[in-house]
Design a protein around this nucleic acid. Structure first.
Lengths: 188, 188
DNA sequence: TGTCATAACGAACATTCGTTAGGCAAAAAT
DNA sequence: ATTTTTGCCTAACGAATGTTCGTTATGACA
């Protein structure tokens, strides 16, 4: 990906975050890039490519993260800590892309949307594995695994709605708080 | 509000839920209502009215709920239980409107968006009061109040992303699970 | 010097957008 | 029985949508 193309992608992500994918026009993006609308098409295939790249690049980051955690660590408490940490880090380090990833994946075309949902399910599965591990190890209480994983992910995902890079809580503080909260909610 | 107007509003809410406010056209709504686009304007002032009503009617429901809880109950644990219960009930009983309320309030016009955010803050404040009560009563551990309230609300709000009226978990089971999880995460 | 790739341009494309105007038939109110 | 209201219609509006077109200036490389 060219430097210029990357710059355009980032501009688009910022606008998508601010106004949403559908409400952001190609002309908006062009204006922010200081270029005529038609000129964008020297770099991209179309508006949807910008959404597609954003969603799938983020999905890959998340998925790689959870796979590493489940590969490397053994103890469920450690795994949970690392998974939360990784999630919060990816999210806060790419906040614009993360917001788009969370909110606008619905506007992918049918085929890509299906693929996206599969990746998302795989990621959720990674968290279910952790919860199940904890139960098997006897350190988590015997909760509904699916529900617990979903609730943890709720807290993690909602961060995009309030995270402020200049706010008083740093990414690692947020991660620590969230691990503490979810772990206490789970442990026996 | 006329019967017909209410029907149109509900049709719009279903479509807004499925495709998002911006991606739903007046023609889509008209088609679903079995009517020509122009005919809708006998009943509504414009597309935005449908979004506006949805957002503010839901906001009022939530706000009334939390105010009642904080008025009636005394003990923080009871309050939390009732607040979670009320939230889950409003949400599951009006799932289409709830989804729109969650996702599309950003597309309100500037003035109404500000008003909406104020209501939302007031609601969050209601939860902060509960957490603070619990700390003062000595039954909750000494957490960051703002952060805790936000995390609880994350779990509650994320329900709209996965709730299935025909799923295996009923609204009251969801509420019970969520209270259990958040309460355990908070208590000393 | 001639050839090619890059990145931009202005103009235009067909389509869709939310909305308005004006009329017409049936139902409700007087 | 006459008037008014209701609910819908067809037709059209101006604006905005994503995208394609042919062209051009620039600069690297042969």
């Amino acid at each position: 990906m060219t430097e210029r193309k990357l710059a355009i992608l980032q501009i688009a992500q910022r606008l998508f975050m601010e106004k949403g994918y559908t409400a952001t026009s190609v002309r908006d993006i062009a204006k922010s890039a200081g270029v005529e609308p038609a000129s964008l098409y020297s770099h991209i295939n179309g508006k949807e490519e910008l959404l597609d790249r954003t969603c799938f690049e983020m999905a890959e980051k998340f998925l790689t993260g959870i796979e590493e955690v489940n590969d490397i660590y053994f103890d469920a408490a450690q795994k949970l800590k690392m998974a939360v940490d990784t999630h919060v880090n990816i999210l806060t380090n790419h906040i614009e892309a993360a917001v788009v990833f969370q909110r606008d994946w619905r506007h992918l075309n049918e085929v890509r949307r299906s693929e996206f949902i599969e990746l998302r399910n795989a990621y959720e599965d990674g968290f279910r594995v952790i919860v199940q591990n904890g139960i098997d190890e006897g350190i988590f209480s015997d909760v509904d695994v699916k529900f617990a994983a979903l609730t943890i992910l709720s807290s993690l995902n909602w961060i995009v709605e309030w995270y402020d890079p200049n706010g008083k809580l740093s990414a690692s503080e947020i991660a620590a708080n969230l691990f503490n909260f979810t772990f206490t909610g789970l442990k026996k």
